[in-house]
Design a binder for these strands. Structure first.
Lengths: 181, 181
DNA sequence: GTCGTATGAATGAAAG
DNA sequence: CTTTCATTCATACGAC
C-alpha cells in the first residue's frame, strides 16, 4: 500500500504575512512546483494535441523541462493526466450549467436532445487545433533557444506521434467500438 | 493553470453574518460569494451526510441553489471539497493536539497505532447520520418549499439516469480494449 | 498599515 | 480514465 506521507513538511502555522509572500520558489518541500516556463511548454504541448504521452515522450519532455528547474518524469505524467481530466471536467460543467439553466425534468434528460448536446461537446473537444504545433515566438532569447530544440523533435517524434495518437487515438474508442457492432 | 483570474474585482459583500451584507452578490468577476441561503443549504446537505456529490448531484444542487443567487456547479464542487477537507484537517489537528500531545516520530507514523487512529476518524466521519436527508425545518416558508424539491429529486431522476450514462457509457472502452489482450 | 483567519480556487499526487 | 485527497495560493474581512 502506498503511503500517504505527503505532509511531513513544516506546514505548521502556515506562512505568516499574507501580504508579501510570492510563490516564487517559496514552497518548502514536498511536491513539484513547476516554473512558469515549464508550465508554458507543457501547455503548448497540450494545446498542440499531446494528451497522453508515452513513456518515452514523457522522458523526453521531462529531460528538456529539467532545464528550467527540478522535475521528474512522474511530474510530467501527472501533469498531462490532470490537465486532460480537468479540462474535461471543466468543459462538462460549463456545458451543463451554462446552457440550460433549468430543466431537470426527467423527460428532458432522457430525450434525444440530451444526446445531441453531448455529441456536440465531444466534437468540440476533438476540434482543438492540432495545427500550429509550436508558436516559436512566445519566449525571450534564452527560451527560444531551448524552445526550438523542443519544437524540433516534438515536431517529428512527439508531434507526429501525438498527433496521431494523442488526437485520433486518444479518445476515439467509443466510435470504434460502436462501429464494430 | 486554468484561469488564474486574480481578483481585480471589487468584490464587496461577504457573508459570515457580521456586517449587514446583502446576498445580492452581483459580482461579475472575482470569486463566488455564496448567499446565506446557499451556505445554509450546502451545510445542511453536508450535515446530512453528503460529502462528495457526484457530477450529477453537483449539477442538481447547483441548479437549485441558483435560485438564491448566481452560482456555478464548480462552486458547489469546491465547496464540498473544501468543507470536507477542512473538517478533516481540523479534526486531525485536534486529535494530534488533544490526544497525544507529543509523539509523531517516524516510527509512530508507520506504526499500526497511527492507522488505527486514522481509521477511527474516518469511521466517525462516515458515521454522520445520513438518515435525515433534509431537516425540512430549517427555513422559513419560502425556503422549505424549494428545499423539499431538492430533497426529492436528488436521489432519483437525474441520478438514475446520469449514473448509467455518465459512468458506463461516457468512456468505458479503453479498459475494455485492454482486457482483450 | 500589518497580521490572523475563513474560505474560494487551484493543482500536484495518488487511489480507484 | 475518473475521482478523491492534501496542500497551497489568493482574497476578503476584522482586530489591532
Amino acid at each position: 500500500m502506498e503511503e500517504r506521507m505527503s505532509g511531513s513538511c513544516t506546514t505548521k502555522a502556515g506562512r505568516g504575512g499574507s501580504s508579501g509572500n510570492n510563490y516564487a520558489s517559496g514552497t518548502k518541500c514536498g511536491r513539484w512546483n513547476p516554473t512558469i516556463e515549464q508550465v508554458k511548454l507543457l501547455t503548448d504541448l497540450f494545446r498542440s494535441g499531446v494528451r497522453t504521452p508515452s513513456t518515452d515522450e514523457i522522458q523526453n519532455i521531462s529531460t528538456r523541462l529539467s532545464f528550467y528547474g527540478k522535475i521528474e518524469s512522474k511530474n510530467v505524467f501527472y501533469w498531462f493526466q490532470n490537465h486532460k481530466a480537468r479540462e474535461r471536467q471543466k468543459r462538462r460543467r460549463v456545458s451543463v450549467d451554462e446552457k440550460d439553466v433549468m430543466i431537470l425534468r426527467e423527460d428532458e434528460f432522457s430525450s434525444a436532445r440530451y444526446f445531441t448536446e453531448i455529441s456536440q461537446v465531444n466534437e468540440r473537444e476533438q476540434a482543438i487545433e492540432t495545427l500550429q504545433l509550436f508558436p516559436l515566438k512566445s519566449f525571450d532569447e534564452v527560451e527560444s533557444e531551448k524552445f526550438r530544440l523542443l519544437a524540433n523533435e516534438c515536431n517529428e517524434a512527439a508531434a507526429a506521434f501525438s498527433y496521431k495518437f494523442g488526437t485520433e487515438m486518444d479518445r476515439p474508442q467509443l466510435d470504434l467500438r460502436l462501429s464494430f457492432l
